[in-house]
Design a protein around this nucleic acid. Structure first.
Lengths: 88, 88
DNA sequence: TAGATATTTAGAGATTAGTCTAAATATCTA
DNA sequence: TAGATATTTAGACTAATCTCTAAATATCTA
């Protein structure tokens, strides 16, 4: 896991809000966009950063692209954080 | 706790290295500086960001200022992270 | 009090990041 | 195949971030 990429991805409030939304349910890019006041192109930029960090996964459904939280990375992120304060 | 300030503070690799150093032992600004190749003034800037986020505490000892990890904030940071993926 | 040491503050320069609009790509449907 | 819908890519602009040097502040010691 690319530590720096993950931390950078989490450092933006819009991206954290996206993750928060996806926690409840997977959503298309457009559905997510309805929750924000910024241009869809700007959100797409955030999506790509979240994907780079492997925090979200995508799946195409027709015209739509469905974003979902990548729960399998949770353990890694948790241990990243834990490592900041304790352990090695 | 100011969530955004904490995430921003953690998003820089130099600052995470500082935290990592302080995990082992508290150190003066100068001692910390010996581990880095950047100007002391630049490090001082990082210190101030870590302090704002309440991730480190300071104590003056004569001319020196001793930095130490603020462990009491660990629980808060952990739950911040946890909250990104599960729970509410 | 002077000079030395430790640290921070101020201001400038370069890079990175987040946003926008316009255009491109991909898919669906009539 | 055309047109509509969904999303991403490209390019530009602005603001924030990280770094530097120079100067300021605080403390210690001779």
């Amino acid at each position: 896991m690319q530590q720096q990429i993950v931390f950078k991805a989490l450092s933006d409030p819009t991206r954290r809000r996206i993750l928060h939304l996806l926690k409840r349910q997977s959503m298309s890019a457009g559905d997510i966009a309805e929750h924000f006041d910024i241009a869809k192109a700007s959100l797409s930029h955030h999506f790509s950063i979240l994907k780079q960090a492997d925090l979200v996964r995508t799946e195409r459904q027709g015209q739509r692209i469905i974003y979902s939280l990548n729960l399998s990375v949770f353990e890694d992120v948790a241990s990243l954080m834990f490592d900041l304060f304790s352990g090695s």
